[in-house]
């Protein structure tokens, strides 16, 4: 009988805690599939952030370390420098990476640390219940922008891929989305390439994954995916910013 669905080995057989309809579970699965396909689970060390995915070290079968809020790229740097032959990745949300940890991500990228960052951007703080993120869209209502995000009060959304792709140390930069099957397949390709770039020793690689938060957006999973497509993608255009043609 043909196997049509199988849990990737790199994903542990435990229930995940995410809200129904949350795309973190899919992103975890894509990473695990890539670890399986590249056969690198045994030599991979992941770094968990602070945020809704703070304990995704429970979900991956590879070695994992939990980092303080925003510090995952520094922690990953420490690990990678001790084990240059291993594969090191960070998994970070928009508050973690683009607010409190801006210095760490910019400098890990500018040093060209041979690590891979999976950056999940859902334009809101999920863990602390729906506050404004650096990536919150203009006019988007959050618990700390109850009248909508106003540029004159709250500034503008930060485009992480565009920012990091100006750095020479960042060699692979791509933005993907979770809003439909085709894009999910694209996301997997990007994640795989990012890991391959690291393994080839080229430099820092990052994949920004546009993602949803049905609970804090107050939308059904379907509506949330549509909202992502209609509102986030115009602000955060999909595609490769750097390293598309890198030989790996």
């Amino acid at each position: 009988m043909a196997v049509v669905f199988k849990r990737p080995h790199a994903l542990r057989d435990v229930p995940m805690h995410y809200c129904p309809g949350c795309t973190h579970g899919i992103i975890h699965r894509l990473i695990a599939e890539v670890l399986d396909e590249l056969d690198i689970e045994g030599k991979t060390i992941g770094v968990s952030p602070v945020g809704c995915t703070y304990n995704n070290y429970e979900y991956f079968n590879c070695d994992m370390q939990q980092a303080a809020h925003g510090r995952a790229p520094a922690v990953a740097t420490g690990i990678k420098r001790v084990h240059p032959d291993k594969v090191v990745f960070t998994y970070q949300g928009d508050g973690d990476l683009a607010a409190i940890g801006t210095a760490e991500i910019v400098h890990a990228a500018t040093r060209g640390e041979k690590i891979t960052t999976i950056f999940v951007n859902n334009a809101i703080y999920g863990m602390t219940s729906g506050q404004m993120a650096p990536t919150t869209l203009i006019n988007q209502v959050t618990t700390t922008t109850p009248y909508g995000r106003k540029p004159e009060l709250h500034g503008y959304p930060i485009r992480v891929c565009e920012l990091l792709s100006t750095l020479d140390g960042a060699v692979f930069v791509e933005r993907v989305s979770m809003h439909d099957i085709k894009n999910i397949m694209n996301a997997k390709k990007a994640i795989k390439k990012a890991f391959q770039v690291q393994i080839a020793g080229k430099g820092f690689s990052i994949v920004e994954v546009l993602s949803t938060c049905p609970t804090n957006w107050g939308k059904s999973p379907d509506e949330a995916l549509k909202w992502l497509k209609d509102n986030m993608i115009p602000m955060y255009p999909l595609g490769n910013f750097k390293g598309k043609d890198l030989e790996v």
Partner: peptide, 19 residues
């Protein structure tokens, strides 16, 4: 209830059983 209710973690994750 959320698996995190009354634990040391403030994750507002909703349980999927709701559906």
């Amino acid at each position: 209830s959320s698996i995190y209710a009354n634990t040391n973690v403030d994750i507002p994750a909703l349980p999927s059983e709701i559906y």
